[in-house]
Every structure is written in C-alpha cells, then in structure tokens.
Design a protein around this nucleic acid. Sequence first.
RNA 1: GUCCGGAUAGUGUAGUGGCCUAGCAUGGAGCCCUGUCGAGGCUCCGCCCCGGGUUCGAAUCCCGGUCCGGGCGCCA
Length: 434
Amino acid sequence: MDIMRTHYASDITPGMDGDTVTVAGWIHEMRDLGGIYFLVLRDRGGFMQITMVKKKTDPELFDSARRLIRESVLTVTGTVKREDKAPRGYEIIPQTVSVLSESDSPLPMDITGKVDADIDTRLDSRFIDLRRRKTLDVFEIRHHALKAVRNFLENEGFIEIHTPKVVAAATEGGTALFPITYFNREAFLNQSPQLYKQIMMSAGFDRVYEIGAIFRAEEHDTLRHLNEATSIDIEASFMDHLDVMGILERLVHEVYAQVSVDCAPQLEELGIELSVPKLPFKRVSYDDALEIALSEGHAIEWGDDFGTAAERAIGNAIGEHYFLTDWPTEIKPYYTHPYDDKPVYSKSFDLMHPRMELASGSQRIHSHKLLHEMIEAHGLNPDGFDFYLKAFQYGMPPHAGWGLGAERLVMTMLHVENIRDVVLFPRDRKRLSP
RNA sequence: GUCCGGAUAGUGUAGUGGCCUAGCAUGGAGCCCUGUCGAGGCUCCGCCCCGGGUUCGAAUCCCGGUCCGGGCGCCA
C-alpha cells in the first residue's frame, strides 16, 4: 500500500505555492466564519490550515466539511497557496477531503489548551492527552535525552545489554518486590539489573549499559516515585567509583547540551530555558552534608540516611547538581566497596539534583570472600546468591557502576513537578491501566 | 505502613445551611458572519460520588462506604 500522504505539516513551506499535496492528520479545530471556513489539521510535526471560501468551493465539499467532527482523522488533497494572512504563511485549498476515521463527541478532555485537565483525567485518556502539543514535547525530549545517553555511552565503549526482568530472588534486599507466578514457582520482577551487570564484568564485557524497566513494590504515593521506572545502568571494569562518577557527570552534561540543541523548538513551546550544568559537579562528602543538615536544624545521627527534608536543605545549600560521596558502609548495599584504610566509609556516591536523588553508584566489592561476608553481615542468605557469587570465584576484575533514574533525569531537566508527566503509561500505587 | 486532603455538566472550576429550579469557562447542537488563528454574536443542551443521619430546609453539617490526590517513611 502506498503511504497515504505526500507531506507532513513541517515539510510544507510558502515557497511551494501551487504544488499539489496530500496531507493527513487529526482535525484540531474548525472556524466557520460563514463565507469562509478554516480547518486546522494536525499531524505529529505541526498544524496546517485548510481554507475553503464558500463561493469558490464545490458546495458538496463545503457542506460536508462543515459537518466534520473534531479529532476525526482525515486526508486532504489540495493546492498549497502562499498567503500572508495564514498562520504559517501558507494554506491548503482542498480538492478532496476523506474521512478515514470519525471521532466520537464530546472529547474526554480539551486538547487545544483552553481548559486544563487533571493528571488523572489525562492519564485515563492518555492517547488524547498525548495529542496535546506540550505533552508530546515532553516525550520528544525524553526520546532525545535517551538518544544522547546511548550515543555518549556508545562513544565511551559501552556495550548495550538486556538482563532478565523475571528473577528468583531479591537483588539487594530492602525494597519490596512484586511476586509473580512463574509456572509453579514463585518469582519476582527485578528491582535492578545490578547483579547481572556485575556478572557481565566477570564475563569480560568490560563496559556495559542497560536502559530498562525496574520494579519496586513500595506503596509510596509521591510526585517522584513510580512502581515501574526506567533505569539507566552502567557497570565498568578496571574502574573505581571516581572513574564512573566522571562518566556520570559527563553524561548528564552531554544530555543537557544535546537536548538544548536537538529540542530547541520543544523547549521553547514548554517555556523552558535549559542551563547546561557546569563540569565538574561538586563533591560533597556524607560527613560534610551531615554538617549542613545539622546546621539547618535537622537532627540526624552519623549513620542515618538523610530524610526528604534534610536532603532538600542540603540541595538548597548547594544549589546545583552535586555528588554526595563516601557514605557510611553500613547504610549502603552489601556489594558496596569499603575504603581499605577506613572501612566504615564506602566508595559510594549519589548524584543529586537539588530537588531529588538522580543516581547512586559505587565501586563494587570484587573479592568473593569479602562479598560473601558482607551478604551475611546484611542478614541475607548467601545460598540465594549462588548464581551471583559464582561469578566472583573465577576471575572477577575490580569494577564500578551506577544506576540513574531516567524519569528523574528528564523531570528535573524540564522542571516537571509530577514524575507521571514524563512516563507514557505510568504505574503507581493506584494505577494499573491503561 | 502512616498522616493529611479532595470528589459539582464531557473537561476545568464557583458555590461552606434558605438568595441553588446550582453560576462561570470550555464543550456539544443550531442560527448569523469572507481572513479566523484561545475568532465573535445569539439560542438551546448538559453536573451536586454512594448510603444513612441532623434540620422546617443539605451541594453545603455529621457518620459510614467507594474512588482519587498528596506529605512522610522507603527509594531511583
């Protein structure tokens, strides 16, 4: 079958005056002035004005066009006419208008930007919500951001991998998992590719990354949590935590820089001025951050994690992206490498945006013996980690890595309040559909 | 897990005991209009989450339920 259109809205220019084109899209708006009738057709790239002057248009075409229903899908074949009075300097004078799919009415929400809709209404009819320019902008930017991530990691010599999402046991303990039935056994949705990307270090892949779904069964209900999120994970051999922090900050910098170039129109439509964070990011040790939190009146003892309020206070004090480094070993996962000379501290870091945590990472323990001990010290049963520990018995290089929340990266970049706004079909405490 | 808040036309809201036969905007139906671009004008259509209670009188107060939103904890 031939493609049904010859041009997208973005392909047509006033210079094409006189050309015959076939365009396709949704009816965005109609304006009937009596003797002249304007139809605004929308495709992914923009809007086109279809103009019909009553006296100059076939009466049958004119009447049927006036009876169209908004958001119906049309193809229009017509002549491009240069016209200074038209929105983009041109309009299309139609010869034929075909309705490919008639819309129901009324619509589940306004999509022209006149009346707001609640996030819940929007998500219930996400397919309509995504027709709204500003919603689409966010996802175009998300696409470009992830493309920049892939390009960057590709250039740094990383291999893309895909690890299992259905697993037999918890990765790190702590967070709640979604249990599922796997034939007649219990299994879980993976909370992180952590164990598998580390196994790939033993396999000699040297540098790997994965962009994929992670699942957390926490019953949180906040603007920055999802039960299904997208994680950007890397793991790299013969590197320490400082090396992968360098990769991470350069990656974030690159994403901002690339998006500001690739997505200038979308950013403008959203009214966002993107400031590319400066390199290098500040390094703030856990101990220094603790002092800031204490001086701001937050009662935290050494060895506690920072609560949301303290985290925000520290973020306000710093005011830009920063690394929170050298965490107490005891509050980090069992695979986190302690400093050899001061083992109560670990070679760990979180990447922070003033609003929230974006990523966390560390140098990993590569000694089989030490890892075994740490698993036990965390109250976990090493038997459940056989498949993982085995990879450390036959030549595991020193390695480090991190996991970065894709949604959080995008939402902080775009000043989006609600994390659901950067996910097509978010999964949260209440929402399992669509 | 815990604490707080909310539910009014398709959508977004106003209304906190009688002036509500529920206002406004958007939308839908129809009419007028030859340059609209959040078009404009006129007419019409469409809503108080469910159940119980208090009261002469409940959208409004109370109780229960359902659904939804958010803070904290946990985390990315």
